[in-house]
Computed example of a mutant assay.
Amino acid sequence: LGALVQGLEASNRLYTGGPFDWFSPFPIMCGFALIIGYALLGSTWLIIKTEHKLQVWARKVSGWMLMALVAAMIAVTVSMFFSDIDALEGWFSFPGLLYLAPMPLIVVLLFFLMRKDLNTEREYRPFLLTVALFLMGYIGVCFAIFPYIVPYQMTIYEAAAADTSLSFMLIGAVIMLPIILSYTAFAYYTFKGKSDHNPMY
C-alpha cells in the first residue's frame, strides 16, 4: 500500500523498478500501521464474539491497539510531508481539498467515540468504528491516486478493457456475487454466538 501511494516506476506500460523498491521507510511504516490496524480490527471483533474474562482482555488489547494506531497514523502522515510523494497534490489541490477537509475531524471523532465505547458495555460499535477508520484511510488513498490505477503512470481510463470484456465480467459478477454472499452469510450463521475463556471438551 505504501509503495503504491509512493508511486511505481514504469515505462511503456511495463514495470521498470527493482524487486525491493517497496523496501524504503515510507512503505515499511505503512506496513506496520496496517498491521496495527488489522490487530485493532481483530481485537474489536473478539469483543463481539467473546464474554467474561476473554472479552475484558479483548477490550484491553483494543485500547492498546487504538493508541498505537493513533501514533502510527500520525507518523505516516508526517512522513508523507517529508517524502517526495505525488499523492499530496491530490490531497491539497481543488476539488480534493474541499472533499477531504472534514476527514481529520471525522477521524478524531471516531477515535474519541471508540475510546469511550471500550470503557462501556458496547460490543458492536467498536468494531464498526474500526471499519469506519479503515474506510477513511481508503478514501484518502483513493483521492490521492485517482484517476491512476498504476500510480502516476497509467489511469483507469487507459487501463480499462474493451466494453465487450467489461460486459462479460459484469455478467460473471452478477452470477457469482450472490453465491459469495450466501456462503459468507452461512459461515457467519454457523459460527454465531459467543465464546469464553473456558475450554470446551
Rank of each mutant, 00 (worst) to 15 (best):
Leu1Asn: 14
Leu1Gln: 15
Leu4His: 09
Gly7Met: 05
Leu8Pro: 00
Leu14Asn: 08
Tyr15Pro: 03
Gly17Trp: 03
Gly18Arg: 00
Pro19Tyr: 05
Pro19Asn: 03
Asp21Gly: 06
Trp22Ile: 08
Phe23Cys: 07
Ser24Met: 10
Pro25Trp: 00
Phe26His: 09
Phe26Tyr: 11
Gly31Ser: 14
Phe32Asn: 09
Phe32Ser: 09
Gly37Cys: 14
Tyr38Gln: 13
Tyr38Met: 10
Tyr38Ser: 14
Ala39Pro: 09
Leu40Val: 06
Leu40Ile: 09
Leu40Gln: 11
Leu41Ala: 11
Leu41Asn: 08
Gly42Ile: 07
Gly42Pro: 06
Gly42Ala: 08
Ser43Cys: 05
Leu46Met: 14
Ile47Gly: 02
Ile47Gln: 04
Lys49His: 14
His52Gly: 15
His52Leu: 15
Lys53Tyr: 13
Leu54Cys: 03
Leu54Tyr: 09
Leu54Gln: 11
Val56Lys: 13
Trp57Tyr: 12
Ala58Asn: 03
Ala58Ile: 09
Ser62Tyr: 10
Trp64Met: 14
Ala68His: 04
Ala68Met: 14
Leu69Lys: 04
Val70Trp: 06
Val70Cys: 11
Val70Gly: 01
Ala72Leu: 01
Ala75Glu: 03
Val76His: 02
Thr77Val: 08
Val78Lys: 04
Ser79Glu: 01
Met80Ala: 08
Phe81Tyr: 10
Phe82Ile: 08
Ser83Arg: 01
Ala87Gly: 00
Leu88Glu: 06
Gly90Trp: 00
Phe92Leu: 02
Leu100Val: 06
Leu100Asp: 04
Pro102Gln: 03
Pro102Ile: 05
Met103His: 11
Met103Gln: 10
Met103Phe: 15
Ile106Pro: 00
Ile106Val: 14
Val107Asp: 08
Val107Met: 09
Leu109Tyr: 13
Phe112Pro: 02
Met114Asn: 01
Asp117Gln: 06
Leu118His: 06
Leu118Ile: 00
Asn119Val: 10
Thr120Trp: 04
Glu121Asp: 15
Glu121Val: 13
Arg122Thr: 12
Arg122Asp: 12
Tyr124Ala: 12
Arg125Asp: 07
Arg125Leu: 04
Pro126Ile: 01
Pro126Gly: 08
Phe127Lys: 01
Phe127Arg: 05
Phe127Cys: 00
Leu128Asn: 00
Leu128Gly: 04
Leu128Tyr: 00
Thr130Phe: 00
Leu135Glu: 09
Met136Tyr: 02
Tyr138Phe: 13
Tyr138Leu: 12
Ile139Phe: 07
Gly140Leu: 05
Tyr148Met: 04
Tyr148Asn: 05
Pro151Glu: 07
Gln153Glu: 14
Gln153Pro: 08
Gln153Arg: 11
Met154Gly: 11
Met154Val: 14
Thr155Gln: 11
Thr155Ile: 12
Ala159Gly: 09
Ala160Cys: 12
Ala161Leu: 15
Ala161Asn: 15
Ala161Glu: 15
Asp163Gly: 13
Asp163His: 12
Thr164Ile: 14
Ser165Asp: 15
Met169Ala: 15
Ile171Tyr: 00
Gly172Val: 03
Ile175Pro: 00
Met176Tyr: 05
Leu181Gln: 07
Ser182Pro: 13
Tyr183Glu: 09
Thr184Glu: 11
Thr184Cys: 10
Tyr188Cys: 06
Tyr188Gln: 13
Thr190Ile: 12
Thr190Asn: 12
Gly193His: 01
Ser195Phe: 13
His197Phe: 07
Pro199Thr: 00
Met200Gly: 12
Tyr201Ile: 10
Tyr201Met: 06
Tyr201Thr: 12
